[in-house]
C-alpha cells in the first residue's frame, strides 16, 4: 500500500520535473526543418497538450503496463530499458561480488589485528576508495590496464551468451575481460564501505562474551572467526549492501559512460541529453520498483542470518 503510494507520488514528481526542462523537439529536429515541420513533430509527440492532460494520458497507459514510447527511437520505453537491464545487472552483480569477496576478509583482518601495518594500509586504502571520484579512477584504470599495459580491453561489452534466457557475458574470457575493469571501478566505493563495516563489526564482536566463551571452550581460532564472528558481522553488511545494490544498479551511470558499457545507466544519460522524456520517466519508475523489491529481499536475508528476526515481525 505504502509502496503503491510512493510509486504514484514519484511518477508525478518525475513527470512534472521532466516536463519543465527544455523542449525535445528543439533537440531532435533537423536544422533544415521549417516551422510547419516542427509543429507536426510537436503534435506527433503529444507535446501540444497541456501538462495535466499529458500526465493523465501517461497514467492511464501506465496502469496498463505501457510507459509510453521513446521519443528518440519510437519503441516502447519499457522494452528499451529492459533490453539493457541484463548488462547493468551483470555489472552490478560482479561489482557486488568483488566488494564482498575482497571486502569482508580484508575488513575482518583489519579488525582482528588493528595495530598491524597491513591493517593500517588496508584502512588507508579504503579512504582512497571512498574519496576518489569514480570517473577519474575509471579513466586512470583505462590508461593503465588498457593503454599502457594492454592487458584488458578499454571499453564496451564482450561476447554475449544466452544463459537461462538471459544474455550474459561473464562466462567467456572475452566477456570477463571486458567486465572486469568497469566492475572493479564500480565496486571500489562499496569495497571500502564493506571493509569499514566488517572491521568495525569484528572489533565489536571480538570483545563479546560468546567469543570469550568459545575461546575458553578451546575452539580453534579459525572456527571462531569463520562461524561466530563472521555470522554476527554479516547483518549490518547485508543491510547496507542490499540497499547499496539498488544504488549500484540505478547509478552505475558514471561507470557505464566511462567504459561505454551498454547498460541502462548509459541509456539514461543519453536520454537526458536528448530529453527523451518517456525513457527518463520509465527508468525512474523501474528504479522505484527495484528499491521496493530489494528491501523485501534484504528482510528475508535477515531472517536467515538472525533467527531472532522473523518475517512476522517485519510485516508488523
Amino acid at each position: 500500500m505504502q509502496s503503491a503510494l510512493v510509486v504514484v507520488i514519484m511518477s508525478f514528481i518525475v513527470f512534472s520535473g521532466v516536463f519543465l526542462v527544455g523542449d525535445p523537439v528543439e533537440i531532435l529536429v533537423s536544422d533544415d526543418a521549417d516551422q510547419e515541420e516542427r509543429e507536426m513533430m510537436i503534435k506527433s509527440m503529444g507535446l501540444d497538450k497541456p501538462f495535466l492532460v499529458q500526465y493523465g494520458i501517461f497514467i492511464s497507459k501506465a496502469v496498463r503496463g505501457d510507459l509510453g514510447d521513446s521519443f528518440v527511437f519510437q519503441e516502447p520505453a519499457l522494452l528499451l530499458i529492459l533490453d539493457r537491464m541484463p548488462a547493468t545487472m551483470e555489472l552490478a552483480v560482479v561489482a557486488l561480488l568483488i566488494a564482498i569477496i575482497f571486502g569482508i576478509p580484508l575488513g575482518v583482518w583489519a579488525g582482528l589485528k588493528p595495530e598491524s601495518l597491513a591493517s593500517k594500509s588496508i584502512m588507508t586504502g579504503s579512504i582512497l576508495g571512498f574519496s576518489l571520484p569514480t570517473f577519474w579512477v575509471g579513466i586512470m584504470m583505462i590508461l593503465l590496464f588498457a593503454v599502457l599495459l594492454g592487458w584488458l580491453p578499454s571499453t564496451g561489452r564482450g561476447d554475449v551468451q544466452i544463459i537461462l534466457g538471459m544474455p550474459i557475458s561473464v562466462f567467456s574470457w572475452d566477456g570477463f575481460s571486458h567486465v572486469l575493469m568497469p566492475a572493479v571501478n564500480l565496486a571500489l566505493f562499496k569495497l571500502s564501505m564493506v571493509i569499514r563495516l566488517a572491521r568495525a563489526g569484528t572489533r565489536e564482536v571480538m570483545h563479546q562474551d560468546y567469543i570469550k566463551f568459545a575461546r575458553a571452550k578451546g575452539l580453534k581460532e579459525s572456527r571462531i572467526i569463520l562461524v561466530h564472528v563472521l555470522k554476527n558481522i554479516l547483518i549490518p553488511v547485508v543491510t547496507v549492501l542490499g540497499l547499496e545494490f539498488g544504488g549500484l544498479v540505478a547509478f552505475s551511470v558514471v561507470t557505464e559512460t566511462v567504459f561505454a558499457w551498454p547498460g541502462m545507466g548509459k541509456l539514461l544519460i543519453d536520454s537526458i541529453g536528448l530529453l527523451d522524456r518517456p525513457i527518463i520517466v520509465a527508468y525512474l519508475m523501474i528504479i522505484v520498483f527495484l528499491f521496493v523489491f530489494i528491501n523485501l529481499v534484504v528482510d528475508i536475508c535477515y531472517s536467515i542470518l538472525d533467527p531472532r528476526v522473523r518475517l512476522e515481525d517485519i510485516k508488523s
Binding site: I139, A146, S154, T155, V258
Partner: peptide, 16 residues
Amino acid sequence: FIKSEPARVAALMAGD
C-alpha cells in the same frame, strides 16, 4: 558507440 571523449581516445590508443 563510445560517447565519452577520454574513453574514445583511450580505446584507440589501446588498440580496441
